[in-house]
Design a protein around this nucleic acid. Sequence first.
DNA 1: ATTGATATGTTATATCATAACATTTCTTGC
DNA 2: GCAAGAAATGTTATGATATAACATATCAAT
Lengths: 153, 153
Amino acid sequence: MNRVQNIIEHAEQHCKEHGARLTNKRKHVLSGLLASEIALSAYELTEYCKTEFDEAIPAMSVYRILEFLEEEHLVHKLKLANKYVACAHITCDHDHGVQQFLICNECQRVKEISIDKSTIKKLQRNVEDAGFHLLSPQLEMNCLCERCMVSAA
Amino acid sequence: MNRVQNIIEHAEQHCKEHGARLTNKRKHVLSGLLASEIALSAYELTEYCKTEFDEAIPAMSVYRILEFLEEEHLVHKLKLANKYVACAHITCDHDHGVQQFLICNECQRVKEISIDKSTIKKLQRNVEDAGFHLLSPQLEMNCLCERCMVSAA
DNA sequence: ATTGATATGTTATATCATAACATTTCTTGC
DNA sequence: GCAAGAAATGTTATGATATAACATATCAAT
């Protein structure tokens, strides 16, 4: 079984555990994100399903499916890019805390990392000192990935 | 002279110093942002100019004006909100380093803060360790402002 | 006053996203 | 198996943000 299928199985199991249904269309959208190295838009995902599975899922449905997948913590929405990525930890059974997203401005490649707790704490304190409350330390950062750094040089 | 006019004067001086022109329309757009407590979209700014100055600046022009104001470091674009804010440091003559933006998810109020250098350094190291390069530590963070925290409680 | 540069206007269109309502598919109790 | 309700998906329309391409107007310097 290949990597994507394996993750899909995990995801399906995860959904079943609380009575959610990972339908075929939802699987297809998720597998589009899993197969992609870069973040994708809802419209790009309809394209993917069309070419890969010959299945015409309208954009409206893709948005709903993405919403479902987000609620299941299988997908993250990147507000900075208005695009979506699969969660990098679907097959981890342990809780994996809050993630940060490094988004390559050139190629949309995304890396999901964990910034150490103390740094996050300090950040949070800075924010509180300013009288604001950080809703979620799930930061998104404008970056360049390794490949694009090399090709830019 | 009121606060907004005072800042506009500073901005004009700043532009003049390197031969850039702060035209009336540019002033109007900038003053819209200066007068606002919250981040505004380009379309909201055309509205503002229409009602406040009875001047119909088409959205296309507002985008160009915002681009100009960004290049002059008079305005920041918030990618997280797809909106714009005036720089909080137009009247400071000293260099004020890299800023972070706290965006209230409820009311779009924005606070521009400076996170201490050591925290930024640590963040940057985390990113580099992941093989990415932080393009700019100008973070944007989803927050709740004081007022909205109170009214939510 | 002319000319070239800069700024702004106009029109069309791309892209991301949601609202409202209709239809299909699934599930569950009978 | 089937009826009824719930869940998922389809359809249509539209809103919001943004950019491209080209036309016109305004400014600045000679």
